[in-house]
Design a protein around this nucleic acid. Structure first.
Length: 593
RNA sequence: GGGGGUGUAGCUCAGUUGGUUAGAGCGCUGGCCUGUCACGCCAGAGGCCGCGGGUUCGAGUCCCGUCACUCCCGCCA
């Protein structure tokens, strides 16, 4: 018999009754009846109930075991009496009658109970992550993550993609987030950077004549954390393809994600054909570029209903400024003064002057705005938005650039408060036609709004003849349930277009040469048209596990301050190490202690 | 860098208007218990109320500062 086990703790069934077995695992739970003792033994595979009575030679030892001790036990598989069967366990029809017991490891009182699914403080969970990971829910999340990884690889290969590896120690990139730097011992004063994404490498892979690249790529960015954004490092399903247009990327990626979510989404419906929503339309209808389509509320322009109306606050603004618009946020079933007032005071809490509204009852509109604009206009608004008695509509007025995000928040809040948001489904969409450039208010100049490597729609002609702020890029996002899952683009593979784009954004050609010299050189030697995308793996797993926080699907995450309290990272290093790297510390002043 | 929330036993939490010796559940220790599976019953140990200062006759409670964790803003091509 094997030194530690003949079976695992999830394996034994009725058909094994009578056999001698050996199991090893952790003490999950002990139930001591004095003359009868139950020990639930747990391992990766499951839980098996062990039973000991005073006839057993190891009864006295068994009485001393505590939670999370590691045991190796031996005994006969017994069938449980009908009324003792535990239907909640796969092994619930049998138990082991203990004949031998070896304590492999003991365990002191636990800072973090493994048994049960109570919530525990994040810092303790991370410090004792090895205990936390024994718990059922997160243990299963990590397993699901692994299965998702395998499925992704299989699906990508089936779609004709090939997996590549790109460097981890690379050069600092001038664009994007702050880099993590690694000092060079051989080149004093010089640094490697960890890649923020293998963006340039995957493009170089295409230029090198490979086709259909993918990689489950670690990405490193020194930026602050959020619930859905790990500090430091995360993984992307990095994809790039040659000789493609936007539509080809969509056709390649959409079935992978749809299939993945159907496989791991526990039967929740998944969007069959992802709708494509232009960026400008997403802003107008949903107030942001990552709309949660489970929320049925769609905003509409209602400016004309207020132009020259008796509601002077809006009418005056419309009169004075061409840019001013009124957006209507329809709220089905929100037609009560109480709800409308709650929304209004929420808006004031958000720093807004308020949130105007009309609510409909007894066949007419109620509230101050309805009184001011009169019956005819109120009725026109109602029919435009398809509202009925018992519904409400909210209004925001001003320059859409400034209020769009607040309007989007109001849409989200109304949908959630009124319970209009569909549950248990994955609603995908593509956001397309992102603007190539945007006006930088602080610098008072035109700048790239997204990725400088994206191809402008209309190519060189558009750059030379169009108002830059009206040019769109072949740039797209995938959004699921209001979470931005990935961002991608058809790349700019023409050096002269690249130079022109940087010129418009106010960069000298020398800057382009200096910062992207390697890339530019590659583009001049026959670059194929190419494009790709990079879905965020951690966020995909988070959605599929039904978790709200990335740390629930990452084995060893850092805390919000980007510290690993288990391994003690970041840490000080020895003077010798610093000397090797030609580094002298220049620490910030701390208050005298 | 900024804003919000939290911080009381190993863990989860309660703690009234500022008023005697700071409580409960789980866990831990001891005792009882032969069919439990969140076993049950009895007893016990366990507290710098995050830390520092202040107000007060008196502070877990009020004020100021600070630290930790977390959520958000900034940041994230």
């Amino acid at each position: 018999m094997h030194r530690y086990r003949s079976h695992n703790c999830g394996a034994l069934r009725k058909s094994d009754v009578g056999n001698e077995t050996r199991l090893s695992g952790w003490v999950h739970r002990v139930r001591d009846h004095g003359g009868l003792l139950f020990i639930d033994l747990r391992d990766h595979y499951g839980i098996t109930q062990c039973v000991i009575d005073p006839d057993s030679p190891v009864f006295n030892l068994a009485e001393t075991v505590r939670s999370e001790w590691v045991l190796c036990i031996e005994g006969a598989v017994r069938e449980r009496a009908d009324d003792a069967v535990n239907k909640n366990l796969p092994t619930g029809e049998i138990e082991i009658f203990l004949e031998k017991l070896e304590v492999l490891a003991e365990c002191p009182e636990l800072p973090l109970p493994v048994f049960g699914e109570q919530d525990y403080p994040e810092d303790i969970r991370l410090k004792y992550r090895f205990l936390d990971l024994r718990r059922e829910r997160i243990h299963n999340n990590i397993l699901k993550r692994g299965r998702i990884m395998s499925s992704i690889r299989q699906r990508m290969v089936e779609e004709g993609f090939f997996e590549f590896q790109t460097p981890i120690l690379t050069a600092s990139s001038p664009e994007g987030a702050r880099d993590f730097l690694v000092p060079s011992r051989m080149h004093p004063g010089k640094f490697y950077a960890l890649p923020q994404a293998p963006q340039q490498f995957k493009q170089l892979t295409m230029i090198a004549g490979f086709d259909r690249y993918f990689q489950i790529a670690p990405c490193f960015r020194d930026e602050d954390a959020r619930a859905d954004r790990s500090p430091g490092e995360f993984y992307q399903l990095d994809i790039e393809m040659s000789f493609v247009e936007q539509e080809d990327v969509f056709q390649a990626v959409e079935p992978v994600l749809r299939g993945l979510f159907e496989e791991f989404g526990d039967g929740q419906p998944v969007t069959q054909k992802f709708p494509r929503i232009p960026y400008a339309e997403a802003i107008q209808k949903y107030g942001n570029d990552k709309p949660d389509l489970r929320n049925p509320i769609i905003m509409e322009d209602a400016t004309d209903h207020f132009r020259g109306s008796g509601f002077k606050i809006f009418a005056g603004q419309i009169e004075n400024d061409d840019k001013v618009r009124v957006w209507a946020i329809p709220a089905k079933t929100g037609g009560s003064r109480a709800f409308c007032d709650r929304m209004n005071s929420w808006a004031q809490g958000e720093g807004q002057p308020g949130l105007g509204y009309i609510f409909f009852r007894d066949g007419e509109g109620a509230g101050p705005i309805a009184k001011n604009i009169g019956e005819e206009r109120t009725s026109a608004i109602r029919s435009q938005l398809g509202l009925e008695d018992g519904d409400a509509v909210f209004f925001v007025c001003g320059d859409p650039k400034k209020f769009a995000s607040f309007a989007g928040d109001a849409r989200t809040r109304a949908g959630e408060t009124l319970d209009l948001v569909a549950k248990d489904r994955f609603d995908f969409c593509w956001i397309v036609d992102f603007p190539m450039f945007e006006w930088d208010e602080q610098e008072e100049k035109v700048d790239f709004s997204h990725n400088p490597f994206s191809m402008p729609q209309g190519g060189l002609d558009a750059l030379e003849n169009q108002d830059p702020l009206t040019i769109n890029a072949w740039q797209y996002d995938i959004v699921c349930n209001g979470i931005e899952l990935s961002s991608g683009a058809i790349r700019n593979h023409r050096p002269e277009i690249m130079k022109k784009a940087f010129e418009i954004a106010g960069y000298e050609e020398s800057v382009l040469e200096e910062k992207f010299g390697g890339m530019l050189r590659a583009l001049t030697y026959g670059a194929p048209p190419h494009g790709g995308i990079a879905p965020g793996i951690d966020r995909i797993v988070m959605l599929l596990c039904g978790e709200e926080n990335l740390r629930e699907v990452v084995m060893f995450p850092m805390n919000q301050q980007a510290e690993d309290s288990l391994m003690g990272a970041p840490s000080e290093v020895s003077a010798r190490q610093l000397r090797d790297l030609h580094i002298r510390l220049n620490l910030p002043k701390t208050p005298a202690s």
